[in-house]
Amino acid sequence: MKVFWKTILVFIGAVIILSAAAFLLPEKVHVERTATIDAPARIVFNQVNDLHCWGKWATWNQIDPEMKVEYINGGVGQESGYHWNNANQQVGNGKLYITRSLPYDSIVVSMDFMKGGLATGYFLFKEDSGKTAVIWAFDTHLGNNPLARWMGLMFDKMMGPDFEKGLANLNTLSKSIIGEQRPVVEIVSLPEVVYAGMKKTVKWENIGAEMGMMYSKISGFLQKNGISVTDMPFTIYHSMSEGEMEIECGLPVNTGFDSTPEITYSKRVAGKYVFGIHVGNYETLEATHTVVQEWITRHGFSVTGGPVEVYLTDPGTEPDPGKWVTNIYYPL
């Protein structure tokens, strides 16, 4: 009996000592891994900023393909997030929100693991010579729970390998986007643009010739009135039907003017736009539009106007159509 009580006392003493020692352990946990991704920052950043992409690279999101996910605010960019539910104890239930998103520079996320507590994660991106250094980090407070304090000593060994694998997956994904020349779609904020514009309903087969004539008339009007062009030409597609479409060709200008029956002084509104880059001949623009449109549908957004094409390359100075760059915008 004395041996029994002596064992109990030793056990109780050990618990007291370990509990007291726990308060000498760090109250905060920090896990961090770094990797160089063989892709520009714009590509890498958007695979993290778009929460729909996490299942392609984040190891936790790949544990159980049956995990139920509900996206918040489209699941892309600042103030978006997702809730997850899963019977698998490795996944459990929780919430993740992007609390800060600075394009191509950094992303901060807050995580609520419900019974598992709260945590903050962040990603830092720095591009150099077409490659991107990425830092992925995780911070949490363990509070005054002695067991949690002792568990905190193992966080780096438990989570570090998942971070390393996730960054390796992110590298593979980003390189595949480059290799397959897939357009990267994102949301951007654009300022107001004042422009001289001309609208016309044209037949599909004549659009190239009609646009050339419209830009020529706008340029002639601006030169005659001493008005300067401040940016690249663009086209707004106001409506489309079988066989024809209503388009508006525009040139950004440095000042206002009185509209004529043919040339109007207009403004392209400031706001958020879904944005994609098309590289190649104008004849293949439709394929990039399709990618952007499918992205909009998948994220649950609604457009508020016709798409805009901004032509960054002058075919007169760049004869190779494969190098022509066109920005595509859909207003939200």
Rank of each mutant, 00 (worst) to 15 (best):
G75Y: 00
M214S: 12
F155D: 10
S106W: 03
W54A: 07
I187T: 14
D162S: 11
V229F: 03
H30K: 13
Y215L: 14
N281Q: 08
I247R: 11
M111L: 15
P40N: 08
G74I: 00
K95A: 11
I177H: 08
M211T: 11
L118R: 03
T326W: 06
E205K: 11
T284K: 12
G130E: 07
E244H: 09
L51T: 03
T140K: 13
A119T: 06
L153W: 03
Q293G: 09
R268I: 14
G212S: 08
F257T: 12
P183T: 04
L190K: 09
A14S: 14
H83P: 01
E164Y: 00
N169C: 09
S266Y: 01
E27L: 04
H30M: 13
P233A: 10
P40F: 10
T140H: 11
A133C: 00
Q62A: 12
L251I: 09
V194I: 12
W136E: 08
V188G: 01
F221P: 02
S241N: 06
E294C: 00
F155M: 15
P26T: 04
V291Y: 05
F125G: 08
N73K: 02
E27Q: 15
V325I: 14
M111F: 06
C249P: 03
S176C: 03
R298W: 00
P233W: 03
A58R: 08
E283R: 13
S302P: 00
I135M: 10
L153H: 05
Q90G: 15
V134Y: 01
V31I: 13
W150E: 14
E66P: 00
H289T: 05
V134P: 14
N254A: 12
